[in-house]
Design a protein around this nucleic acid. Structure first.
Lengths: 221, 221
DNA sequence: CCGGCGATTATACAGATGTATAAACAATTA
DNA sequence: TAATTGTTTATACATCTGTATAATCGCCGG
């Protein structure tokens, strides 16, 4: 994508010629993360602002990203990858435990509190901003859905329980959890526990629903 | 709230003294709606921009709203009220029909296509922006949930079907429908029909889930 | 040690933004 | 008609933005 990003692709074709970069893409991404907050979305950050926070001249920004939007997309991908890893681990660790729903939701919410700013990118900024930005977030959500879908099928087989339209089940759960997580982000700490319990019940309803339908026991109104 | 808004409260204390306002709050709100679009969120509109679109001097804006944020909150309330009315009608009209889920979801999606810009405010801008703005959106969602919750209980009684935690059911359905609606907003027209059908299935899963749990037929994994 | 080159910077410019101040305006009241 | 009052406007200012241009810095190969 970017000629500078390809540094990591070709490790050192000719070391470095000229002055070595004193600042890295990662530094700029970190600076951007310092600036975002509950009332500051990534798309409202200015190039100068990020550069200022990183302690470099505005123009140096261009050597690393074409514009703030490209930086935002990179951050989204990083946040998505890290979240999917955490949740994936939680799900597989829980296979031997008791409730997959509970441990997955709890893992998600833990990641939510500990990485608030990263999570905010995925949860609440996916619907505004440039097309590239929206697409990047949507991509992460679909990754998430796909992995969840696979696990749902595997679990259904293991438990000898039916599952109806696992794709839609995965989609429902993902979107619901992300939506509830977004509102939970600015929730008073003492209400968080309750929010987690509520969310677990919500997810269980979906799971019970798909099982009941699959087993032909559903009464459709 | 605003001394000009109170026009409608005290009809005409002393008609008008001085020049009559040549532009109204509604004109400014309409101008703002012209400017928003799939890639333009309300919180990124500048005061000058809205004034320009409305054809007034920038400073005249202050006679009607304190800032763009106050205008945005007013728009949110208007959008929320109109949506709740449409959906409420659809739900009660459907009580005599066949599927409440189908007709409600379809009514929602119709409103989505016909009032895209208004709906966008509720669906995708609720998580960024000022606290006042986020609170306004959340308020509309809770209104929506409450009304849905009441109807769910009524329907369960009418159908002699159980319902578990109707509050959480209403919340799940609301958040899920809004989340899916937000992504559906920039969907190619030919994919919309499929999205509606998928969404109906998702909602049905939740409904079947709550019924199954209420009737003690659930197998909790 | 030095010439070259790439990363970084300083400076600058045009445009946009929020808003302060005061003048121009029109409708109502006296 | 004339004074009054609230609305609208013109002008202005400081600040911020993205970016173009050219100079500076420091490492690396010769």
């Amino acid at each position: 994508m970017n000629e500078i990003a390809s540094d990591e692709l070709r490790p050192a074709p000719r070391a470095h010629q000229g002055r070595r970069a004193v600042i890295s893409r990662e530094d700029l991404m970190a600076a951007a993360m310092v600036l975002v907050g509950p009332n500051r979305s990534i798309s409202t950050l200015s190039l100068r602002e990020v550069a200022r926070e990183a302690g470099i001249a505005p123009n140096s920004f261009y050597r690393h990203f074409r514009d703030v939007d490209e930086l935002a997309v990179t951050l989204i991908e990083q946040a998505g990858a890290s979240l999917r890893q955490v949740i994936g681990e939680a799900r597989h660790r829980a296979i031997t435990g008791r409730s997959v729903v509970r441990s997955s939701v709890e893992a998600f919410m833990e990641q939510l509190w500990s990485e608030q700013k990263y999570m905010q990118l995925l949860l609440r900024e996916g619907t505004v901003g440039s097309d590239a930005f929206k697409a990047a977030v949507e991509r992460q959500l679909v990754y998430f859905e796909d992995e969840l879908g696979v696990d749902l099928v595997r679990l259904a087989r293991a438990n000898n329980s039916g599952i109806y339209r696992p794709d839609l089940v995965a989609r429902s759960i993902t979107r619901l959890v992300f939506a509830m997580g977004a509102t939970a982000l600015d929730l008073a700490p003492e209400k968080r526990r309750q929010a987690v319990e509520d969310l677990i019940i919500m997810v269980r309803m979906i799971v019970v629903g798909t099982q009941t339908i699959a087993e032909g026991r559903a009464r459709i109104d």
